[in-house]
Design a protein around this nucleic acid. Structure first.
Lengths: 120, 120
DNA sequence: TAAGTGTACTAGCTCACCTAGTACACTTAA
DNA sequence: TTAAGTGTACTAGGTGAGCTAGTACACTTA
């Protein structure tokens, strides 16, 4: 379900957060579906339950999941969050455009790259 | 010349590296121009000389500047490096495209954003 | 000779990240 | 009722990155 990249400089809890968020956003995890328990996922990934807990806390804080004490964590019914994520993507795109501009790369070149061989 | 953003989670030496590299790439610092000395820049930015040294070392390692002991650091005559940087930009663009795809955003939407209000 | 330069150390501090362990309230199923 | 599984909240400690402080030395230039 999830793979940790120890060569990645980003912290583990953040990697897990990102991957779970993506699974929720693209529908692989559906609304009201039960998430793996903190302890279960910690066992599977061979890391500390506290680290998973931290990922889950952030997912809950941002509204991607909700918690029922004693039962578990469940996927939220997303809505506005999709729009939030879209904004995040476009912000990242803006940053790339800005860097490109400083390097003398035109918008048309970026567009050509997207149309051409760019991974999509 | 340079401003450190302490709200930025990225390390200081990396911020300085990025900004100096950009000044070199866009021609604000020209070939064979003398860079500020390690100690001078450390004074100006009120940080430790070792931190500047680390930025300079990385700039030299990647070929953006060259060092003459006892005299100082000087801007290299770039060439291949511009192409390297272009690749880096396009790689970042590819990552955005990949994230966009996972979120259901099409390439055309990204293009529209670049053409429209995207910062350039 | 003195000032300025890069460079290379050692030492220590702080903080983020992660692990280990314990404890407690809750829910569910046997 | 009981046992197992759940989230949650602690404390304690290890590790490493990042940064500072200080010192030292070889080099260049005025």
């Amino acid at each position: 379900m999830i793979l940790i990249d120890y060569k990645d400089s980003r912290p583990i809890y953040e990697q897990i957060f990102d991957k779970l968020r993506l699974l929720i956003l693209n529908g692989a995890l559906k609304a009201d579906e039960k998430m793996p328990s903190v302890r279960t996922m910690a066992m599977e990934l061979s890391i500390n339950p506290n680290t998973i807990q931290r990922s889950y806390s952030e997912l809950e804080r941002q509204g991607y999941i909700y918690t029922v004490k004693g039962r578990g964590n469940f996927v939220s019914d997303i809505g506005k969050l999709r729009e939030e994520y879209r904004k995040e993507i476009f912000n990242r795109l803006d940053e790339v455009c800005a860097s490109a501009g400083n390097a003398g790369i035109t918008g048309e070149e970026l567009i050509e790259h997207i149309r051409g061989g760019g991974k999509q």
